[in-house]
Simulated scan of single mutants.
Amino acid sequence: MKLYYAETVSPRKVCVASRYLGLPIDYVFVDLRKGEQTRADYLAINPNGKVPCLVDGERSLWEADAILCHLAQRAESGLWPRNAQQQIDVVRWMSWNSQHFSRHAGSLYFEHIIKPWVGMGAPDQPKVAEAQGFFRKHASVLDQHLEGRKWLLGDQMSVADFSVAIMLPYAKDAAMPVGEFAQMQRWHDQLNALDAWRNPFPARPSNAAINA
C-alpha cells in the first residue's frame, strides 16, 4: 500500500489510523506549496487533486473517511465494527462531522493556521466569531452524546472517533472553545493517550508541517 499525504487535517486522520494499526504502508509526501497535487501523475490516481490518496494494489482510493474504513477492514480491526447497526452509526457520525462539526472547526483552522501559513494575513474576526458560534452549537450535540459513553459508539473506539476528533489537536492554535465542553475534552484526552494520535505523521523536516 502507498499513502499520499500532506501534514494537514484530512491526511492526519488516515496517518493516525495507519500508525495505530501498524500496517505496512509506504508514505509519499505531497508538497502542497509546490502544487504537487496538481501534477498529471498525481491526478491520474486522484483526479480531485487532493490528499490523502491510498493506492492498494490496483485500487486507488480517495477521501479520508473511506480510507480510514478501508484500513480498519484491511487490518481486520475492531476500529471497523462487525455489527451492522454500529457500521451505520460510523457513517452517521462521519457524515455529521463533515457537514457540521469539522466544517466550522475547519473555518477556525483556516483563519488561524492556514492563512498565516500561506501569507493571507490576519484572521477575519467576524468570520471567526460566526464559526465559533456554530462550533459551540455542534460541540454541544457531541458533548451531550458523549455523556455516559467512553467513545462515540460506546465502550469501543472506532474509526468514527478518529474522524470526528481530528480537528481537536489544533484547538488551541485555532481558537476552538473546546474547554467549554467537559465530555468532549475528556474524550480527546483519551485519544491523546495514544502515541499514534499525538505523532501521526512520518518523520519530516519540522518546517514542512502545518502545526502538526
Rank of each mutant, 00 (worst) to 15 (best):
C69K: 15
Q99F: 15
V90N: 08
V90W: 04
H70A: 10
V91L: 03
F101G: 03
Q86H: 00
E76S: 02
V90Q: 07
Q87A: 09
R92N: 07
A72V: 04
R82N: 13
Q73N: 06
W93D: 15
S95Q: 11
L108N: 11
N97A: 07
A75R: 09
Q99S: 15
R82H: 12
N97L: 04
H70K: 12
H100K: 11
W93Y: 07
N83V: 04
S107V: 13
L68T: 02
Y109S: 08
H104L: 05
F110H: 05
W93M: 14
R92D: 06
W80A: 14
A105S: 09
E76T: 01
V90D: 08
A105Y: 00
Q86M: 01
W93A: 14
L71S: 13
N97K: 06
Q87D: 10
V90L: 06
R74S: 04
E111A: 05
H112L: 00
Q99M: 15
S102W: 06
A75V: 14
H100S: 10
N83K: 04
L71G: 15
I114Y: 00
V90G: 09
A84I: 11
A105M: 02
S98I: 14
W80H: 09
H70N: 12
S95V: 10
W80Y: 08
R82T: 11
W80M: 14
R103P: 03
S98W: 07
D89V: 11
F110N: 05
Q99P: 08
Q87L: 10
F101N: 04
P81N: 07
E76D: 03
M94N: 12
W93N: 14
A84H: 12
Y109C: 11
G106W: 02
